[in-house]
């Protein structure tokens, strides 16, 4: 359970971040386009209720609900995730500090387990493992890191009435990135909205997972992914992520991004 929870917390943050990119220039370099997605304006803070609905290959469905607070602190972003359901997970909390990619610093993370009444520090070097046992990995959820791959512009394509930039990404040595577990990706970016709409993940030449945005809504002037699906081609099954009751710039207090919130929860 400890591991599942550790894995689970990050997924949500990633989803919030994956979809942000704004590039209107067709000639823009893929790296620049992805940097714009990474640095997309998502307001000063955001509060959401999230649902992770995982359907396993045998049809077993597992659902988790959580409240998520995010806030920008200069170039740093902080997030708190607090699980409210189901009962065996409720009360678990995760605190995350994400730093500017240029700083080279790894994220800092803490996990609060009600069974221990203690916060535990989590190592963030390897993000290959599943987030809360779902089809998302920690790497899928973290803030986009442009320097993990080399990119190639593959032109544009139409998807659901939108023109998307298709970008092929691969590691410098062709081997899997030890942090993410992927060697290759094919990324579809909506440049105008600064969002990744589809992401195909490969390991050793094998297509293992696909991320796809299936719901998008403009909330308080920000394009927000309200539903996304990660399909696991390697092991079967998929995980649906729903973002509900999202509000931006509500003035979330700085003090809430603290281990204290992990214990007392988010109301």
């Amino acid at each position: 359970m400890k591991l599942l929870l550790k894995s689970a917390a990050l997924t949500l943050l990633g989803l919030a971040i994956l979809p942000a990119l704004a590039v209107s220039e067709k000639t823009m370099k893929p790296e620049t386009l992805l940097e714009q997605v990474r640095d997309r304006d998502e307001g000063d803070d955001r509060r959401s209720r999230m649902i992770l609905e995982q359907t396993m290959s045998d049809g077993f469905v597992r659902e988790r609900e959580l409240l998520m607070l995010e806030k920008k602190f200069g170039a740093e972003r902080k997030a708190v995730l607090y699980f409210t359901a189901p009962a065996d997970t409720a009360g678990t909390g995760i605190l995350m500090f994400s730093y500017e990619e240029a700083s080279g610093k790894d994220d800092d993370q803490w996990l609060y387990l009600p069974a221990l009444r203690q916060s535990r520090r989590i190592a963030t070097n390897s993000k290959e493992g599943p987030f809360l046992g779902t089809d998302f990995s920690f790497a899928d959820i973290e803030r986009l890191r442009v320097n993990d791959y080399l990119y190639e512009d593959q032109g544009s394509t139409e998807m659901n009435g939108r023109t998307l930039h298709k970008i092929a990404a691969h590691t410098a040595n062709g081997l899997e990135n030890p942090r993410t577990g992927y060697s290759q990706r094919v990324i579809y970016v909506d440049a105008e909205r600064q969002l990744i709409m589809r992401d195909e993940f490969y390991r050793e030449g094998r297509h293992i997972k696909t991320f796809e945005v299936t719901g998008l809504k403009e909330i308080d002037g920000f394009w927000t992914v309200t539903e996304a699906v990660m399909t696991n081609h390697a092991e079967g099954g998929f995980t649906r992520l729903l973002r509900k009751e999202t509000t931006y710039n509500v003035g979330i207090a700085d003090r809430l991004f603290n281990e204290r919130t992990l214990r007392s929860g988010i109301q």
């Binding site: 591991l3 550790k6 535990r120 989590i122 190592a123 493992g129």
Partner: peptide
């Protein structure tokens, strides 16, 4: 020392 790696703790 703690390590979490791909569902191993």
């Amino acid at each position: 020392f703690d390590r979490v790696d791909n569902e191993w703790t």
